[in-house]
Simulated assay, not measured.
Amino acid sequence: MSSYKIALLPGDGIGPETMAATELVLEQIAMEFSDLNFETISYRAGAENYRDTGVTLPDAVLEGCLAADAVLLSAIGLPDVRQPDGTEVQPTMMVGLRRAMGLHSAVRPVKLYPGAPCVLQNTGPGIDFVIIRENLEGLFASFGGGGMVGDDVATDTLIVTRKGTSKVAEYAFQLARRRSGRPADGKQIVTCVDKANVFRSMAFFRKIVNDASQSFPDIEHNAVYVDAMSLYMVQNPWDFDVLVMENQFGDILSDLGAGLVGGLGLGPSAEMGDDHALFQPSHGTAPQIAGKNVANPLATILSASMMLDWLGERHNDDSCLAAAAAIETAVAEVLAAQMVRTPDLGGASSTTEVAEAVAAAITKTPVTDTSH
Protein backbone atom coordinates (compact mmCIF):
# COMPACT_ATOMS: atom_id res chain seq x y z
CA MET A 1 0.00 0.00 0.00
CA SER A 2 1.15 3.53 -0.82
CA SER A 3 0.66 6.14 1.89
CA TYR A 4 0.97 9.87 1.33
CA LYS A 5 0.95 12.70 3.87
CA ILE A 6 -1.05 15.64 2.51
CA ALA A 7 -0.98 19.07 4.17
CA LEU A 8 -4.35 20.80 3.75
CA LEU A 9 -4.66 24.60 3.89
CA PRO A 10 -8.42 25.39 3.74
CA GLY A 11 -7.76 29.13 4.04
CA ASP A 12 -10.44 31.82 3.93
CA GLY A 13 -13.81 32.67 2.40
CA ILE A 14 -15.08 29.79 0.28
CA GLY A 15 -11.81 27.94 0.85
CA PRO A 16 -13.04 25.66 3.66
CA GLU A 17 -16.15 24.74 1.62
CA THR A 18 -14.29 23.76 -1.54
CA MET A 19 -11.69 21.94 0.56
CA ALA A 20 -14.41 19.91 2.33
CA ALA A 21 -15.87 19.03 -1.06
CA THR A 22 -12.46 17.88 -2.29
CA GLU A 23 -11.89 15.81 0.83
CA LEU A 24 -15.16 14.02 0.06
CA VAL A 25 -13.81 13.13 -3.38
CA LEU A 26 -10.46 11.98 -1.98
CA GLU A 27 -12.29 9.77 0.50
CA GLN A 28 -14.10 8.15 -2.41
CA ILE A 29 -10.79 7.65 -4.21
CA ALA A 30 -9.36 5.92 -1.13
CA MET A 31 -12.37 3.57 -1.14
CA GLU A 32 -12.02 2.75 -4.83
CA PHE A 33 -8.23 2.39 -4.75
CA SER A 34 -7.64 0.20 -1.72
CA ASP A 35 -3.86 0.31 -2.15
CA LEU A 36 -3.81 4.09 -1.63
CA ASN A 37 -3.88 5.78 1.75
CA PHE A 38 -3.96 9.53 2.38
CA GLU A 39 -2.98 10.96 5.73
CA THR A 40 -4.39 14.47 5.65
CA ILE A 41 -3.45 17.14 8.19
CA SER A 42 -5.35 20.43 8.13
CA TYR A 43 -3.55 23.65 9.08
CA ARG A 44 -4.89 27.11 9.79
CA ALA A 45 -3.22 29.91 7.85
CA GLY A 46 -4.27 32.95 5.86
CA ALA A 47 -6.23 36.14 6.45
CA GLU A 48 -8.49 34.92 9.26
CA ASN A 49 -5.45 33.58 11.08
CA TYR A 50 -3.72 36.96 10.60
CA ARG A 51 -6.80 38.76 11.95
CA ASP A 52 -6.74 36.59 15.07
CA THR A 53 -3.01 36.19 15.69
CA GLY A 54 -1.14 38.73 13.57
CA VAL A 55 0.56 35.90 11.65
CA THR A 56 -0.41 34.76 8.15
CA LEU A 57 1.80 31.68 7.86
CA PRO A 58 2.83 30.30 11.26
CA ASP A 59 6.23 28.59 11.45
CA ALA A 60 4.59 25.31 12.48
CA VAL A 61 2.38 25.40 9.39
CA LEU A 62 5.35 25.98 7.10
CA GLU A 63 7.20 23.11 8.76
CA GLY A 64 4.17 20.90 8.21
CA CYS A 65 4.06 21.83 4.53
CA LEU A 66 7.76 21.09 4.10
CA ALA A 67 7.36 17.71 5.83
CA ALA A 68 4.34 16.64 3.74
CA ASP A 69 4.46 14.70 0.48
CA ALA A 70 2.28 17.42 -1.10
CA VAL A 71 0.32 20.52 -0.13
CA LEU A 72 -3.29 21.17 -1.15
CA LEU A 73 -4.37 24.76 -0.64
CA SER A 74 -7.89 26.02 -1.22
CA ALA A 75 -8.05 29.85 -1.22
CA ILE A 76 -6.58 32.51 1.04
CA GLY A 77 -6.96 36.24 1.58
CA LEU A 78 -9.77 38.64 2.45
CA PRO A 79 -10.01 42.18 1.06
CA ASP A 80 -10.71 43.73 4.46
CA VAL A 81 -7.78 42.04 6.22
CA ARG A 82 -4.68 44.08 5.49
CA GLN A 83 -1.20 44.66 6.83
CA PRO A 84 -0.14 48.01 8.34
CA ASP A 85 1.13 49.19 4.92
CA GLY A 86 -2.34 48.67 3.42
CA THR A 87 -1.53 45.57 1.35
CA GLU A 88 -3.45 42.29 1.57
CA VAL A 89 -1.87 39.40 3.45
CA GLN A 90 -2.32 36.84 0.65
CA PRO A 91 0.81 37.76 -1.34
CA THR A 92 2.98 37.56 1.76
CA MET A 93 1.84 34.03 2.48
CA MET A 94 2.03 32.78 -1.09
CA VAL A 95 5.43 34.27 -1.87
CA GLY A 96 6.69 32.96 1.46
CA LEU A 97 5.48 29.45 0.65
CA ARG A 98 6.92 29.54 -2.86
CA ARG A 99 10.33 30.68 -1.70
CA ALA A 100 10.52 28.27 1.25
CA MET A 101 9.42 25.29 -0.84
CA GLY A 102 11.46 26.25 -3.92
CA LEU A 103 8.41 26.17 -6.21
CA HIS A 104 9.96 27.33 -9.48
CA SER A 105 7.21 26.40 -11.97
CA ALA A 106 3.53 27.33 -11.78
CA VAL A 107 1.30 25.15 -13.96
CA ARG A 108 -2.09 26.32 -15.23
CA PRO A 109 -4.00 23.89 -17.47
CA VAL A 110 -6.39 25.52 -19.94
CA LYS A 111 -8.74 22.74 -21.01
CA LEU A 112 -12.27 22.96 -22.38
CA TYR A 113 -14.38 20.04 -21.15
CA PRO A 114 -17.54 19.07 -23.06
CA GLY A 115 -20.50 20.75 -21.40
CA ALA A 116 -18.45 23.57 -19.89
CA PRO A 117 -19.45 27.09 -20.99
CA CYS A 118 -17.17 28.78 -23.49
CA VAL A 119 -17.13 32.41 -24.61
CA LEU A 120 -15.79 31.50 -28.06
CA GLN A 121 -18.18 30.79 -30.91
CA ASN A 122 -15.62 28.56 -32.61
CA THR A 123 -13.60 26.11 -30.53
CA GLY A 124 -12.08 24.34 -33.53
CA PRO A 125 -10.62 20.91 -32.70
CA GLY A 126 -10.70 21.76 -29.01
CA ILE A 127 -8.80 23.73 -26.37
CA ASP A 128 -6.18 21.92 -24.32
CA PHE A 129 -2.94 23.71 -23.52
CA VAL A 130 -0.89 24.46 -20.41
CA ILE A 131 0.65 27.73 -19.26
CA ILE A 132 3.93 27.31 -17.38
CA ARG A 133 4.81 30.41 -15.38
CA GLU A 134 8.23 30.99 -13.89
CA ASN A 135 7.28 31.31 -10.23
CA LEU A 136 10.11 32.86 -8.22
CA GLU A 137 11.69 35.54 -10.40
CA GLY A 138 10.54 37.95 -13.09
CA LEU A 139 8.73 41.03 -11.87
CA PHE A 140 7.60 39.20 -8.74
CA ALA A 141 11.22 39.04 -7.56
CA SER A 142 10.66 42.64 -6.43
CA PHE A 143 7.99 41.60 -3.94
CA GLY A 144 8.96 43.10 -0.61
CA GLY A 145 11.58 45.23 -2.32
CA GLY A 146 11.35 47.85 -5.01
CA GLY A 147 12.28 51.45 -4.44
CA MET A 148 10.52 54.68 -3.56
CA VAL A 149 11.83 58.23 -3.94
CA GLY A 150 9.56 60.36 -1.80
CA ASP A 151 6.07 60.49 -3.24
CA ASP A 152 7.24 60.95 -6.82
CA VAL A 153 9.00 57.80 -8.06
CA ALA A 154 8.45 54.07 -7.55
CA THR A 155 10.49 51.27 -9.13
CA ASP A 156 10.38 47.48 -9.28
CA THR A 157 13.03 45.32 -10.92
CA LEU A 158 12.40 42.37 -13.24
CA ILE A 159 14.89 39.56 -12.59
CA VAL A 160 15.77 36.74 -15.00
CA THR A 161 18.50 34.25 -14.05
CA ARG A 162 19.87 31.36 -16.04
CA LYS A 163 19.30 28.95 -13.15
CA GLY A 164 15.70 29.93 -12.53
CA THR A 165 14.71 30.08 -16.19
CA SER A 166 16.46 26.79 -16.96
CA LYS A 167 14.35 25.05 -14.32
CA VAL A 168 11.05 26.29 -15.70
CA ALA A 169 12.12 25.67 -19.31
CA GLU A 170 13.18 22.11 -18.57
CA TYR A 171 9.92 21.47 -16.75
CA ALA A 172 7.97 22.79 -19.77
CA PHE A 173 9.74 20.40 -22.15
CA GLN A 174 9.32 17.48 -19.76
CA LEU A 175 5.60 18.19 -19.51
CA ALA A 176 5.26 18.47 -23.29
CA ARG A 177 6.83 15.02 -23.59
CA ARG A 178 4.07 13.59 -21.37
CA ARG A 179 1.21 15.27 -23.20
CA SER A 180 -0.64 14.31 -26.38
CA GLY A 181 0.29 17.49 -28.22
CA ARG A 182 -1.78 20.44 -29.39
CA PRO A 183 -5.37 19.78 -30.53
CA ALA A 184 -4.72 21.16 -34.03
CA ASP A 185 -2.46 18.31 -35.14
CA GLY A 186 -1.13 16.41 -32.12
CA LYS A 187 2.29 18.08 -32.36
CA GLN A 188 4.19 18.29 -29.09
CA ILE A 189 5.51 21.82 -28.94
CA VAL A 190 6.78 24.30 -26.35
CA THR A 191 6.14 27.98 -27.08
CA CYS A 192 8.23 30.63 -25.34
CA VAL A 193 6.10 33.72 -24.66
CA ASP A 194 8.16 36.87 -24.15
CA LYS A 195 8.89 40.43 -25.24
CA ALA A 196 12.33 39.70 -26.63
CA ASN A 197 12.07 42.40 -29.28
CA VAL A 198 12.20 45.12 -26.60
CA PHE A 199 13.79 43.91 -23.36
CA ARG A 200 17.21 42.37 -22.79
CA SER A 201 15.79 40.32 -19.93
CA MET A 202 13.22 38.78 -22.27
CA ALA A 203 15.80 38.10 -24.98
CA PHE A 204 17.84 36.33 -22.30
CA PHE A 205 14.77 34.36 -21.21
CA ARG A 206 14.20 33.22 -24.82
CA LYS A 207 17.87 32.27 -25.21
CA ILE A 208 17.74 30.06 -22.13
CA VAL A 209 14.58 28.34 -23.35
CA ASN A 210 16.30 27.73 -26.70
CA ASP A 211 19.30 26.30 -24.85
CA ALA A 212 17.04 23.96 -22.87
CA SER A 213 15.41 22.72 -26.07
CA GLN A 214 18.68 21.11 -27.12
CA SER A 215 18.10 18.38 -24.53
CA PHE A 216 14.66 17.62 -26.00
CA PRO A 217 15.17 17.06 -29.74
CA ASP A 218 11.85 15.19 -29.95
CA ILE A 219 9.87 18.26 -28.86
CA GLU A 220 9.40 21.20 -31.20
CA HIS A 221 9.70 24.75 -29.91
CA ASN A 222 8.97 28.27 -31.09
CA ALA A 223 8.46 31.76 -29.63
CA VAL A 224 5.64 34.31 -29.68
CA TYR A 225 5.56 37.86 -28.31
CA VAL A 226 3.24 38.20 -25.34
CA ASP A 227 0.97 40.82 -26.94
CA ALA A 228 0.47 38.59 -29.98
CA MET A 229 -0.18 35.59 -27.74
CA SER A 230 -3.05 37.41 -26.03
CA LEU A 231 -4.62 37.60 -29.50
CA TYR A 232 -3.81 34.04 -30.62
CA MET A 233 -5.17 32.52 -27.40
CA VAL A 234 -8.57 33.92 -28.37
CA GLN A 235 -8.41 33.42 -32.14
CA ASN A 236 -6.81 29.97 -32.39
CA PRO A 237 -6.14 28.43 -28.95
CA TRP A 238 -6.01 24.93 -30.45
CA ASP A 239 -2.62 25.75 -31.98
CA PHE A 240 -0.85 25.60 -28.61
CA ASP A 241 0.42 22.83 -26.37
CA VAL A 242 2.77 24.12 -23.63
CA LEU A 243 3.47 27.83 -23.16
CA VAL A 244 6.38 28.94 -20.96
CA MET A 245 6.83 32.53 -19.79
CA GLU A 246 8.02 35.01 -17.19
CA ASN A 247 6.15 35.34 -13.89
CA GLN A 248 4.03 38.44 -14.52
CA PHE A 249 3.15 37.49 -18.10
CA GLY A 250 2.00 34.10 -16.81
CA ASP A 251 -0.05 35.71 -14.06
CA ILE A 252 -2.02 37.65 -16.66
CA LEU A 253 -2.35 35.14 -19.49
CA SER A 254 -3.36 32.28 -17.21
CA ASP A 255 -6.50 34.18 -16.16
CA LEU A 256 -7.26 34.90 -19.80
CA GLY A 257 -6.93 31.19 -20.46
CA ALA A 258 -9.36 30.35 -17.65
CA GLY A 259 -11.84 32.81 -19.15
CA LEU A 260 -11.84 30.79 -22.37
CA VAL A 261 -12.84 27.51 -20.75
CA GLY A 262 -15.54 28.27 -18.21
CA GLY A 263 -13.92 30.62 -15.72
CA LEU A 264 -11.77 30.34 -12.63
CA GLY A 265 -14.20 27.88 -11.06
CA LEU A 266 -12.83 25.30 -13.51
CA GLY A 267 -9.20 26.44 -13.24
CA PRO A 268 -6.86 24.16 -11.29
CA SER A 269 -3.19 24.93 -10.79
CA ALA A 270 0.03 23.52 -9.40
CA GLU A 271 3.33 24.97 -8.25
CA MET A 272 6.26 22.61 -8.77
CA GLY A 273 9.71 22.48 -7.22
CA ASP A 274 12.55 20.00 -7.19
CA ASP A 275 11.48 18.49 -3.85
CA HIS A 276 8.05 19.95 -3.07
CA ALA A 277 4.77 20.79 -4.79
CA LEU A 278 1.67 22.77 -3.93
CA PHE A 279 -1.74 22.52 -5.58
CA GLN A 280 -4.56 25.05 -5.49
CA PRO A 281 -7.50 26.40 -7.48
CA SER A 282 -6.90 29.55 -9.50
CA HIS A 283 -9.82 31.45 -7.98
CA GLY A 284 -9.91 33.66 -4.92
CA THR A 285 -11.82 33.46 -1.66
CA ALA A 286 -15.09 35.05 -2.92
CA PRO A 287 -16.17 36.23 0.57
CA GLN A 288 -19.48 37.47 -0.82
CA ILE A 289 -20.68 33.88 -1.22
CA ALA A 290 -18.76 32.25 1.63
CA GLY A 291 -20.88 30.05 3.88
CA LYS A 292 -23.69 29.72 1.33
CA ASN A 293 -22.60 26.33 -0.07
CA VAL A 294 -22.79 27.59 -3.66
CA ALA A 295 -19.09 27.88 -4.56
CA ASN A 296 -17.80 25.80 -7.45
CA PRO A 297 -15.49 23.10 -6.01
CA LEU A 298 -14.30 21.71 -9.35
CA ALA A 299 -11.11 23.80 -9.56
CA THR A 300 -10.02 22.49 -6.16
CA ILE A 301 -11.04 18.93 -7.06
CA LEU A 302 -9.10 19.13 -10.34
CA SER A 303 -6.12 20.52 -8.40
CA ALA A 304 -6.28 17.38 -6.24
CA SER A 305 -6.20 15.33 -9.45
CA MET A 306 -3.03 17.19 -10.48
CA MET A 307 -1.61 16.44 -7.03
CA LEU A 308 -2.19 12.70 -7.41
CA ASP A 309 -0.70 12.78 -10.90
CA TRP A 310 2.44 14.46 -9.55
CA LEU A 311 2.72 11.98 -6.69
CA GLY A 312 2.26 9.13 -9.13
CA GLU A 313 5.01 10.40 -11.40
CA ARG A 314 7.36 11.19 -8.52
CA HIS A 315 6.93 7.82 -6.82
CA ASN A 316 6.36 5.69 -9.92
CA ASP A 317 2.95 4.81 -8.50
CA ASP A 318 0.59 3.54 -11.19
CA SER A 319 -2.33 3.40 -8.78
CA CYS A 320 -1.89 7.06 -7.91
CA LEU A 321 -1.74 7.95 -11.60
CA ALA A 322 -4.93 5.98 -12.22
CA ALA A 323 -6.64 7.73 -9.30
CA ALA A 324 -5.70 11.12 -10.77
CA ALA A 325 -7.19 10.12 -14.11
CA ALA A 326 -10.33 8.83 -12.37
CA ILE A 327 -10.97 12.19 -10.75
CA GLU A 328 -10.57 14.11 -14.00
CA THR A 329 -12.76 11.62 -15.87
CA ALA A 330 -15.44 11.96 -13.21
CA VAL A 331 -15.34 15.77 -13.38
CA ALA A 332 -15.62 15.59 -17.18
CA GLU A 333 -18.65 13.29 -16.91
CA VAL A 334 -20.41 15.61 -14.46
CA LEU A 335 -19.78 18.62 -16.71
CA ALA A 336 -20.89 16.76 -19.85
CA ALA A 337 -24.16 15.69 -18.19
CA GLN A 338 -25.01 19.37 -17.52
CA MET A 339 -27.32 18.36 -14.67
CA VAL A 340 -25.34 19.22 -11.53
CA ARG A 341 -23.58 22.56 -11.68
CA THR A 342 -23.09 25.55 -9.42
CA PRO A 343 -24.49 29.04 -10.16
CA ASP A 344 -21.28 30.31 -11.77
CA LEU A 345 -21.86 27.70 -14.50
CA GLY A 346 -25.53 28.55 -14.88
CA GLY A 347 -26.92 25.95 -12.50
CA ALA A 348 -28.49 25.87 -9.05
CA SER A 349 -26.60 23.01 -7.40
CA SER A 350 -24.73 23.34 -4.14
CA THR A 351 -21.03 22.84 -3.55
CA THR A 352 -21.79 19.61 -1.73
CA GLU A 353 -24.07 18.30 -4.49
CA VAL A 354 -21.35 18.82 -7.11
CA ALA A 355 -18.79 17.01 -4.95
CA GLU A 356 -21.22 14.14 -4.38
CA ALA A 357 -21.85 13.90 -8.13
CA VAL A 358 -18.11 13.69 -8.83
CA ALA A 359 -17.69 11.04 -6.13
CA ALA A 360 -20.57 9.03 -7.58
CA ALA A 361 -19.01 9.23 -11.05
CA ILE A 362 -15.73 7.91 -9.64
CA THR A 363 -17.51 4.72 -8.52
CA LYS A 364 -18.40 4.11 -12.17
CA THR A 365 -14.84 4.63 -13.38
CA PRO A 366 -13.02 1.35 -14.15
CA VAL A 367 -10.26 0.82 -11.61
CA THR A 368 -6.94 -0.23 -13.11
CA ASP A 369 -5.46 -3.35 -11.54
CA THR A 370 -1.95 -2.38 -10.45
CA SER A 371 -1.27 -5.40 -8.25
CA HIS A 372 0.93 -7.23 -10.76
Rank of each mutant, 00 (worst) to 15 (best):
G291P: 12
A299P: 06
G11N: 10
R108G: 11
Y232W: 14
V55S: 05
R162W: 11
T370S: 06
G186F: 08
L97Y: 00
A324Q: 06
P268V: 07
M1K: 14
E32K: 13
G347I: 07
V130H: 11
V55Y: 04
N293F: 11
N49Y: 06
H283W: 07
K5Y: 12
Q280N: 01
V242T: 12
D12H: 10
Q28E: 14
E137G: 11
R206N: 04
G181I: 00
G257L: 13
K207Q: 15
L36E: 00
V242C: 11
C320N: 04
W310F: 11
Q248C: 05
C192V: 14
Q235V: 09
G147M: 10
V367P: 05
G64K: 05
S269L: 02
I219G: 00
G11M: 02
V334C: 01
A45G: 03
Q288T: 14
D152V: 13
G138C: 07
G312I: 04
A184W: 04
F279S: 01
E17D: 13
M233Y: 08
E170D: 14
A106I: 03
A299Y: 04
V261N: 07
K292A: 15
G115S: 06
G164L: 07
G262A: 02
V261Q: 05
G102F: 09
V25S: 03
G145N: 10
T161R: 12
Y50A: 04
M1L: 10
E246Q: 15
A325G: 03
Q235C: 01
R200T: 14
Q248F: 12
D156R: 11
M19Q: 05
D369K: 10
S371N: 13
S142T: 11
T53V: 10
Q214R: 00
A30E: 15
R182G: 06
T329S: 06
F173T: 06
N37G: 07
Q248A: 14
A360S: 07
A277E: 06
A299F: 02
R133T: 05
A323S: 08
L231I: 15
R314G: 05
M202F: 13
G186N: 12
E137S: 04
Y232E: 11
R133W: 02
L66G: 02
